[in-house]
Design a protein around this nucleic acid. Structure first.
Lengths: 332, 332
DNA sequence: TCACACATGTCAATCGTTTATCACATATTT
DNA sequence: AAATATGTGATAAACGATTGACATGTGTGA
């Protein structure tokens, strides 16, 4: 049987109250008793039961983290950063992969509430806004619009896409395509599309949007990409994420289209992972570390001071252009 | 304030006992009251407080999942599969990235115990065996030796490396290198190294082990790999993981060494991710789905029937060779 | 020596749910 | 008519820790 407060008290030869005082550090305590209690705790390998503490009104130090999947390196790196920072603040995460599945997401939300998590970081949603509003818990969102009660952290998607488009233009491309899934409403892709469109207009070029379903398998995506490239019309492609960009590079290689001479490609996300294993890809880098820091610090603040109003409800973080060989032949 | 059992009872016009009976489905109950109670629960959007239930001795339905990192696609896919299967069995996971950090791992272990998780799936460890043995919880390990009390699930690492070596030989390689970190004791890499060595001996060739530190950055790994390739001696490389293999392919490309003509490369892991984005890589495929299923089913069994002894303590799952262009010029 | 900070103890209520024990119905069998 | 099955309620004791109220010391400075 696991030792309880009682056992520690007995072992240390003090009362439970004293032990509790030591653990929670309040009231008057002599160094002597503190030592005795700590020693007893160590000897018994005692761990206070979180459930009992939380039931009494203390925090659970659990945070629900909802993302569609962790296989995508962008989410993997973001979740890992979030986990790290939350750990340093004394929180543990319950990982919820919504898998773009309404039911699963709903179930998770229910479970999180039942488990009395202290807060939620959400980077996915298929549910109605209502269901999130009714949660009654501190929530912070990454890049998704939930409601005006829930703060959003995101990258500067508009500017990112604009930067990407300009980069292709500067590299000499004139038939610049946008490759992504523009039908995901409430998603950042919208803003990226707008950034692309506005920039194309400013450059007095024509927009070309090639739709690609995000939930499709890479194989099917590749097929669609090859069909596009086979026309040999596009000479620049703005991709809404790095993985799609990698598929474009591979398709170009297969079709013997030289990059960047005949075709310039740029991605979006800029994870360390992709940069390490596909260093030729130019991309728009999202500041993953800053995103994670901000998400965590906002959430922790909401938890610790629920009444203190937030200064902002939208935090837009700057992105960076990372130029590599997929847009310019030589590295700078 | 969140509704409690009490509120539901009042709303439904029955006693708390009855509501509890409905929720936990025991004793005699008429359909009528059940309906009344369910309706009240729905109307109040009632969720039983997990903490209180668990405190009373019920399960927490929380599982600690400890891996070094989720950025590696192999771990990402494995964790995602584990999460999926546990979710289907009604469990949530607390994700613990140990980051190869003793202290962090120890802290997590403490937290997991304090949170009364029902069990642990561990795919990493830097701590002593003792600390895991003292946990007193159902634990299942992936590919790491903890103790003889803790069941291990792993792929057939020995045979995988043997298969890989033979594949390179069949493809014509005679100077076959082993690229990995053979100094990670208690790790699967040991068995992979042995599989390589035994096979090389059988083929009457000479072993060549090129050590590469796993915790190094890909950039540093690449440097080390280029040094090896520049000698133009190796004509076949068995990599202990796919990511390293990708670095080898890239290095070869830079050095204008043709693959597979001059150099044959094979990886290990066979994640969907790598296969989708690096389809030219031959590899040894670990059965991620089976591993996840087995880990979860063993753990759930240990949780539900702690006294029932396990039939086995070591489960070795078969691996498969996936032949691609990095070993043979044409796909089969 | 009196007041007060310091140090510890006793006791009991509390968090929200579970569950056992009785009690008391009504219904259905024998 | 007696025995048993079915359905519900009231009550209270757990689960393990927290915390407030109150009591009772010691030491110390004024």
């Amino acid at each position: 049987m696991r030792p309880k407060l009682n056992d520690v008290a007995a072992k240390a030869g003090v009362s439970v109250t004293t032990v509790s005082r030591v653990i929670n550090n309040y009231g008057y305590l002599s160094q002597g008793t503190k030592d005795k209690v700590f020693r007893a705790m160590k000897e018994l390998n005692y761990q206070p039961n979180s459930l009992a503490r939380s039931l009494h009104g203390k925090k659970t130090h659990l945070i629900g983290v909802i993302f569609p999947s962790i296989v995508n390196p962008f989410f993997a790196e973001l979740v890992e950063q979030i986990e790290n920072r939350l750990f340093n603040s004394g929180y543990k995460i319950i990982l919820c992969n919504s898998a773009d599945n309404r039911e699963k997401e709903r179930d998770y939300l229910r479970m999180l509430i039942a488990n009395q998590v202290d807060g939620i970081i959400a980077g996915a949603h298929n549910l109605g806004i209502d269901e999130y509003n009714r949660v009654g818990l501190p929530i912070v969102s990454f890049d998704r619009l939930f409601s005006d009660k829930i703060p959003i952290v995101s990258s500067d998607n508009f500017r990112g896409a604009a930067l990407a488009t300009k980069e292709l233009y500067q590299a000499g491309a004139r038939h610049i395509y946008f490759l992504g899934d523009p039908h995901q409403t409430g998603n950042p892709t919208d803003l990226r599309l707008q950034g692309y469109q506005k920039t194309i207009a400013k450059l007095q070029l024509t927009t070309h949007v090639h739709t690609i379903n995000f939930t499709e398998s890479p194989t099917l995506k590749s097929l669609s990409i090859k069909k596009l490239l086979a026309k040999r019309y596009a000479d620049g492609i703005v991709c809404t994420d790095d993985l799609t960009a990698i598929l474009v590079l591979r398709a170009a290689q297969e079709l013997k289209i030289s990059v960047p001479q005949e075709l310039k490609v740029i991605g979006f996300d800029g994870t360390s992972f992709v940069q390490e294993y596909n260093p030729e890809l130019s991309t728009i880098v999202q500041p993953i570390h800053d995103i994670a820091s901000l998400l965590v610090s906002i959430l922790v603040q909401r938890i610790d001071q629920p009444d203190k109003p937030l200064e902002q409800m939208r935090y837009v973080l700057p992105v960076k252009l990372l130029r590599n060989r997929s847009t310019f032949p030589f590295e700078e």
